Simulated scan of single mutants.
Amino acid sequence: MFDTEPPGLAPRLVGLLPFQEGSSPYEHAKEFPFVVFAGGRGLGKSAVLGELRDAYLGRTPVALIDCEEPQFAGAPPDRPREAWSPVSQALLTIAEQLAEPVTGAGRIPFPRLAAGLLAVAAGGWGDRDVPRIRRETERILLLNDTGAWPPVLAGRWVGRVSGKVIAAMSGTGPVVEPIIEATLEAFCEGVSPAHRRLRKAAAWYRDYPNASGSPKLGLVLLSGHFRACGGSRAHAERYLVRALLTDLDDAYTGAIQRTHRPGRPVVLIDNAQTAPGSGLVGPVLRDRAEGIADRVAFFAGLRGQGHPALRDAVRRTLSEVALSSGWEPDASISSRALLVPLPPLSPDDTAQEERPG
């Protein structure tokens, strides 16, 4: 997994050598697999994902979530269930980690995701609980911070936009459309590079299904689909996953950005058999199968090997992927995944895992 000469699976997919400076040739330059480490308890899946995080933290954007964490188990007591899901919480958590600056490059903004998450959250603000709404709004808006502004100015912008959002609820009727209007207005004002980026992100929602070229209608539909739950919510969540990946792609677009951001960003999903795991894995595989590319190196840990979303995944042993993954997808969605069962730990492996530090 972590070999450097010749490069193991991780450096061949990430494009960077682990735990040291230097790049690695990509095994798959264009389309590449979504790697899933599978097996029962105690095989070291979490340890592998933790080691992947440590290998690349600070050198390329990295996010690690454990789907069994309490934050994904249910909506907070003050958050209506129709405006919250494990997937929306996971996307917010992943984006906050990926946004952190790395060597040679600043923070990554997530304006598309922020606009979508605000539209979703607005579906739960009918009670007009101003302190809660301000907290939720400001946390989401901070996803737009590039670090280019001094913290004071960034804070002022966040405060001004959250003020617009709260002012939009001054009436007694539904709040979703007024909040979306206030958000789009805030995103589209100003002439700085940051505001041009926000305008471009807002315009992205004009392509939401049935939006008829209207960003406002796109966000209204997204919010409504999310509140509807079931298949409609899954549709909205898929679009939110795509928003995060499109924001990431923007951060790597252009000669200057590519120069400063070598390799691929890394997203690590532990215990993917639990929500929000399937709501993250499924949309990525479907988009890749439909030719909607992304540039993220995904690695997941899965308890067991029989998840329906991975029925046609390419299967390789850990030893088989040492020099080459041998991964070639077919027409099926799940073939975009590479399933690697982990072998039982040896006594030496177990001793190393239990060693302090």
Results as ranks from 00 to 15, higher is better:
residue 1 M to Y: 06
residue 6 P to D: 07
residue 12 R to K: 10
residue 19 F to R: 11
residue 26 Y to H: 11
residue 27 E to C: 14
residue 28 H to W: 11
residue 32 F to D: 00
residue 33 P to N: 12
residue 33 P to L: 08
residue 41 R to W: 14
residue 55 A to W: 01
residue 62 V to I: 13
residue 62 V to D: 04
residue 63 A to E: 01
residue 70 P to I: 14
residue 71 Q to H: 03
residue 72 F to Y: 10
residue 84 W to Q: 08
residue 88 S to T: 14
residue 94 I to S: 01
residue 96 E to L: 14
residue 102 V to K: 04
residue 102 V to H: 04
residue 103 T to F: 08
residue 104 G to M: 07
residue 105 A to P: 04
residue 111 P to N: 12
residue 124 G to S: 10
residue 124 G to A: 12
residue 124 G to C: 11
residue 128 R to Y: 07
residue 131 P to D: 15
residue 134 R to G: 13
residue 141 L to S: 11
residue 154 A to N: 14
residue 155 G to I: 11
residue 155 G to D: 02
residue 156 R to I: 10
residue 161 V to W: 08
residue 164 K to P: 01
residue 168 A to L: 13
residue 181 E to Q: 13
residue 182 A to K: 09
residue 183 T to K: 07
residue 185 E to M: 12
residue 188 C to S: 15
residue 188 C to N: 15
residue 189 E to M: 08
residue 192 S to R: 13
residue 201 A to Y: 01
residue 207 D to L: 09
residue 218 G to F: 05
residue 219 L to Q: 06
residue 223 S to T: 06
residue 224 G to W: 03
residue 225 H to T: 09
residue 227 R to M: 15
residue 232 S to A: 15
residue 236 A to P: 07
residue 242 R to Y: 03
residue 244 L to A: 14
residue 251 A to T: 04
residue 252 Y to R: 15
residue 260 H to L: 15
residue 264 R to G: 12
residue 270 D to A: 09
residue 275 A to L: 07
residue 281 V to Y: 00
residue 282 G to R: 00
residue 285 L to P: 00
residue 293 A to N: 07
residue 295 R to E: 03
residue 297 A to Y: 01
residue 302 L to V: 00
residue 302 L to R: 00
residue 309 A to M: 03
residue 311 R to M: 09
residue 315 R to S: 08
residue 315 R to K: 13
residue 316 R to Y: 03
residue 316 R to W: 04
residue 316 R to A: 14
residue 320 E to K: 06
residue 322 A to K: 02
residue 329 P to V: 02
residue 329 P to R: 02
residue 332 S to W: 02
residue 342 L to D: 08
residue 342 L to S: 11
residue 352 Q to Y: 08
residue 356 P to T: 14
